[in-house]
Amino acid sequence: MRKTSMYISLGVLALALAIAPFVISNAFYLDLVIRISMNAIVVLGLNLLVGFAGQISLGHAGFLGIGAYASAVLPTHFGWHPLPAMLAGAVICGLLAAAIARPIFRLKGHYLAMATLGLGILVNIVLRNESQLTGGPDGMPLPTMGLFGLELSSDRHWYWVVAIFLVVSVWASLNLIDSPFGRALRALHGSEVASRVVGVNVVRYKVTIFTMSAVFASIMGSVMAHYVGMVTPGFADFFHSIELITMVVVGGMASVWGSLLGAALLTALPQALATFEGWETVIFGAILMLFMIFLPKGIVPTLASKFGKKGD
């Protein structure tokens, strides 16, 4: 029954994404949907780490920045094709995450938050200072990306690429959390001591989910950079990390569909508030405060518990 419900929900998402470009005629709204989808994929990976495994990360934009710059630096300076450059960025992020996860996850609470925050800030500083490779604070342009002989030069081309990425990411996340690996993550979130008692290798699961989440971010950093056509250190900025974690919290931690809703809301809301010139930041902050006061578990889990359903 649960599997059937999962595939129905996934089918509805795929159908909505398939219909959307034929319904949306305005280029601005198509661009907004693409950005929402890209953010949703990053937030899905982050939610696996934060929501399901209970491990905080305040520097996740650092991995996104590494992926973005790999897709800029390797083709520009070393003549790589954009697709292998994207894969190289994912491998670099995966290896970096696996290397630092063991010492970082020995920390708890505020100390863990500060360690991940420091990682993101360090990546941002390197990207700003290595100007010969990265272009410094001004960033650098990216070459046009081709896929299977097709040059991805229009928003509609990018829409289909990102839509496929999103459906696959949601499918993978839903299957992951329903697997023994996902159940181990939930146990880890509940109690590390109890998890060890029942035979869960706590360190291995922490390292694995942190690495997977970093790879998610790196791949979408590359996609975002190619879509925009320009990469700057802002990709790895501290505020970008906070924006991503806020999407997780607002949508609902430990909820796949909450990740999508949080990404949609926090990507679209600033655009909708742009008409309130000079007040948009105040109104945006007030809306977030109201969400946290009245929906402390996030939108999807709160509504799901109210109507007696699970929020995965």
Results as ranks from 00 to 15, higher is better:
248 V>E: 06
5 S>Y: 04
49 L>I: 07
11 G>K: 05
159 Y>C: 00
148 F>R: 15
188 L>N: 14
243 E>I: 10
309 K>L: 12
117 L>I: 08
73 V>R: 01
238 F>R: 10
179 S>L: 00
168 V>I: 01
133 L>Y: 09
48 L>D: 10
265 L>G: 06
80 W>Y: 01
282 V>Y: 15
25 S>R: 11
75 P>V: 00
264 A>C: 08
132 Q>R: 09
49 L>K: 00
75 P>L: 02
40 A>S: 03
146 G>Y: 11
218 S>N: 01
236 A>Y: 14
180 P>E: 01
38 M>I: 14
47 N>R: 09
209 I>L: 09
124 N>D: 13
260 L>W: 02
126 V>C: 07
212 M>W: 03
80 W>A: 09
216 F>E: 07
165 F>Y: 03
162 V>M: 05
289 M>E: 11
268 A>P: 00
270 P>M: 11
152 L>I: 14
21 P>D: 06
19 I>Q: 02
66 I>T: 12
97 A>I: 04
31 D>Q: 13
162 V>R: 07
9 S>Q: 00
29 Y>A: 04
55 Q>A: 01
120 G>P: 13
167 V>G: 01
45 G>Q: 00
301 P>C: 03
304 A>L: 04
308 G>K: 06
105 F>N: 06
93 C>F: 10
28 F>R: 15
135 G>V: 00
230 M>G: 09
48 L>H: 10
208 T>C: 06
243 E>M: 10
44 L>T: 02
75 P>H: 01
150 L>C: 13
304 A>E: 02
309 K>T: 04
125 I>L: 10
66 I>N: 08
136 G>L: 05
247 M>G: 12
286 A>Q: 14
195 S>D: 10
103 P>S: 07
87 L>Y: 03
133 L>S: 06
136 G>N: 10
27 A>G: 14
178 D>S: 13
89 G>N: 00
276 F>L: 09
164 I>W: 07
141 P>L: 07
61 A>P: 07
83 L>W: 08
161 V>L: 15
48 L>A: 10
45 G>Y: 08
5 S>I: 00
105 F>M: 15
290 L>V: 09
40 A>K: 07
41 I>F: 10
4 T>N: 03
145 M>A: 11
261 L>F: 02
130 E>R: 10
71 S>H: 05
3 K>H: 05
258 G>F: 00
244 L>Q: 15
110 H>V: 11
22 F>V: 00
187 A>H: 04
155 D>N: 15
27 A>M: 06
99 A>W: 12
117 L>S: 08
288 L>Y: 08
43 V>Y: 00
292 M>A: 15
132 Q>A: 07
301 P>N: 01
19 I>F: 01
78 F>T: 04
58 L>A: 07
72 A>F: 03
37 S>P: 00
208 T>V: 05
194 A>L: 14
131 S>W: 06
62 G>M: 12
112 L>D: 09
306 K>N: 13
